[in-house]
Amino acid sequence: MSALNGLAIRAIYRFEMARFGRTLMQSLISPVISTALYFVVFGAAIGGHLQDVGGVPYGAFIVPGLIMLSLLTQSISNASFGIYFPKFTGTIYELLSAPVSYVEITLAYVGAAATNSVILGLVILSTAAVIVPLQIAHPLWMLSFLVLTAVTFSLAGFIIGVWADGFEKLQVIPLLIVTPLTFLGGSFYSIDMLPPFWRTVSLFNPVVYLISGFRWSFQGASDVAIGVSLAMTLAFLAVFLAAVAWIFRTGYKLKA
């Protein structure tokens, strides 16, 4: 066997992708429909009566934020469920007794969750292109931010899945923390539109940097400098990677 158990990574990855395939309604169709409704209501219906934001029609302005909203929540949901379910059913014994390193387990679970989230993001993007006028200033950067954010928040989901000891806990962080932060992170507005005090407060919201960077790749303009956005995204990635490394080193909630 080589230094990396590629066959095991592939087995877990395909297992997870098959699971996503079985739950298409929950993992793909449902978020696409709800996001499409946002586009219809805020973009086509109300958006027509709102001013452009930075020269961009409101419907097109909210596209990056809405994609990011789905990307963050689904990345967390996919990855957390992926590792939590074997814990719940007890099949985690097989994973722990297999000749698979922690790096390989993480690569497989996070890779599958991130793949699913990127597919979701691209489907939402395609849906948006049908409903609102859309332009992408930096397609490669857009794709890079999409993949980077999906991987980063799939790692976060993996951590939540390991930590959770009930289905309720799987939902707590996406619903009570990630969704509010995303709504308040400039999904529907530019933080430059806020009064100075609230703008300063918003800068403590980490999601601002994710949305701002992603929006820059579409519209060529952003609330925060692109370098800062990229650095913050990479910082999240580093923090979550460190947390995963700690979990596996200590066996936290995985091994007795």
Partner: peptide, 9 residues
């Protein structure tokens, strides 16, 4: 799946 997990083709 189990066979793949244990690194066997």
């Amino acid at each position: 799946f189990s066979r793949g997990l244990f690194g066997r083709r």
